[in-house]
């Protein structure tokens, strides 16, 4: 599916970096997370005080650190994509390894956060806030894990096209977190 056939895609679609299928996936993911956040905000309207109290149980600093970790990881992934274009395979793998390691750090911090919340008796059904908290951040964490796998695959079969596909997914994971973080952790 690399050679762009005439027909389906109008010109602008052909200029997308990476693969059209990755963009279909990215748009689908953004729709899901967008709908999830919209639902979260709507339910929040019915109980602002309860949501604020529930939010106070979260570890904001940990989530803030995680934001830095993930954005930095995205930076390394982007550098890897550039390095691949420049034809430096060793550098590509080193940068991808850094990006993946930071993804691992993100998951570790997230895991500690979950452990703390569960230790405090906060479960999916404790309060609507936590239903959304676990669903949205849980889905996101699953995508971080999937992203690490994808980055390892494109590192293994490194080509500029594959790197674009992999980093596009990784940036989507970044982007979703950057939106989830303020809405879930900070919004008062």
């Amino acid at each position: 599916m690399s050679a762009p056939p005439q027909g389906l895609a109008a010109e602008p679609l052909e200029q997308l970096p990476g693969d059209l299928m990755m963009w279909v996936l990215i748009v689908s993911e953004l729709l899901v997370f967008g709908a999830g956040l919209a639902a979260f905000l709507s339910v929040r309207l019915s109980d602002p005080a309860g949501f604020a109290d529930a939010q106070d149980q979260l570890h904001r600093a940990a989530a803030g650190v995680n934001t830095l970790v993930l954005v930095t990881s995205g930076f390394f992934a982007a550098r890897a994509s550039r390095a691949c274009l420049a034809g430096r395979p060793r550098q590509v793998r080193a940068l991808l390894a850094l990006a993946m390691a930071l993804g691992g750090v993100f998951l570790l911090v997230k895991g500690l956060e979950y452990a703390e919340a569960i230790g405090a008796g906060l479960f999916l059904e404790t309060h609507p806030f936590f239903t959304f908290y676990y669903l949205l951040t849980g889905f996101h964490a699953a995508h971080v894990l999937a992203g690490i796998v994808i980055l390892s695959l494109v590192g293994w079969k490194a080509s500029p096209q594959n790197l674009e596909v992999g980093t596009a997914f990784w940036h989507m994971v970044d982007l979703v977190w950057v939106i989830l973080f303020p809405v879930i952790y900070l919004l008062r």
Binding site: P5, Q6, G7, M21, V24, L25, S28
Partner: peptide, 14 residues
Amino acid sequence: DREVVEKWLYVIVA
């Protein structure tokens, strides 16, 4: 063309 049909098919299935 088959190429065009297949591209649509992949998007639909995904």
